[in-house]
């Protein structure tokens, strides 16, 4: 879509006061500036998330101040805190209930990998085992600036998504699922322990 516009012509027109855009740019511009997060905090990272939403850091500057209490109205899930195995099915279910397009920020070490509680018997070793994560923020907990940075990264990602063509955004593909299987409590662990379609851990290369 945006390939159709000659950049030189566009900047010339812009200097004359004529703004030319494409539907894709308009769509992405609207989406990236009105990301509504799900009002959903799990642990201490949620305090940082609240601080980010409050006046000092003010996520409203980026269009994300409308924390929705319902997944049906939310675009972004900020997994803020330790995900216990008791909580993981609920998170996946909430993610499933969010309307497309939906994005996930894994906030903090716990949401990424289990963090300092990784050895715990009841801690999920990263929410990316069950749902696709767009932005990871390291930190324990990450500062509000880090969350704002992740928010800006997500905005950049949304801005680059294509509306049509072979490499269009995943939520526009009819084959791409919108729901992911919810893990159930098994005898010893969650069943399945990870969704193989989502979870792609980096392969460890050992030098012999």
């Amino acid at each position: 879509m945006s390939e159709g516009i000659d950049e030189v012509l566009r900047s010339k027109l812009q200097r004359q006061g004529v703004w030319v855009t494409s539907m894709q740019e308009l769509y992405n511009w609207g989406r990236k500036n009105s990301i509504w997060p799900l009002q959903f905090g799990l642990a201490c990272c949620a305090i940082e998330m609240i601080a980010t939403a409050a006046s000092r850091y003010d996520i409203a500057r980026f269009g994300g101040e409308v924390f929705r209490p319902s997944p049906r109205q939310a675009d972004l899930m900020i997994v803020a805190g330790t995900v216990t195995k008791k909580m993981a099915p609920q998170i996946v279910r909430l993610y499933n209930q969010m309307a497309d397009p939906k994005y996930v920020i894994a906030m903090g070490a716990c949401a990424i990998s289990g963090g300092p509680f990784k050895q715990g018997y009841n801690v999920l070793k990263g929410i990316d085992r069950y749902i696709p994560v767009d932005v990871y923020i390291p930190g324990c907990p990450p500062r509000p600036e880090a969350l704002l940075h992740a928010f800006m990264e997500l905005q950049q990602k949304i801005d680059e998504q294509k509306l049509s063509g072979a490499d269009k955004a995943a939520h526009l593909e009819s084959e791409q699922p919108s729901e992911y299987p919810v893990p159930a409590f098994g005898k010893h662990d969650l069943e399945p322990p990870a969704n193989p379609n989502v979870f792609h851990p980096p392969a460890i290369e050992r030098q012999s």
């Binding site: 319902s70 997944p71 049906r72 609920q90 998170i91 279910r93 909430l94 499933n96 209930q97 309307a99 497309d100 009819s174 699922p177 919108s178 729901e179 919810v182």
Partner: peptide
């Protein structure tokens, strides 16, 4: 992309 969970009545995750 409707689905059984997306169309569920309750939206609290439980």
């Amino acid at each position: 992309k409707p689905g059984p969970q997306k169309n569920a009545i309750y939206e609290c995750g439980v």
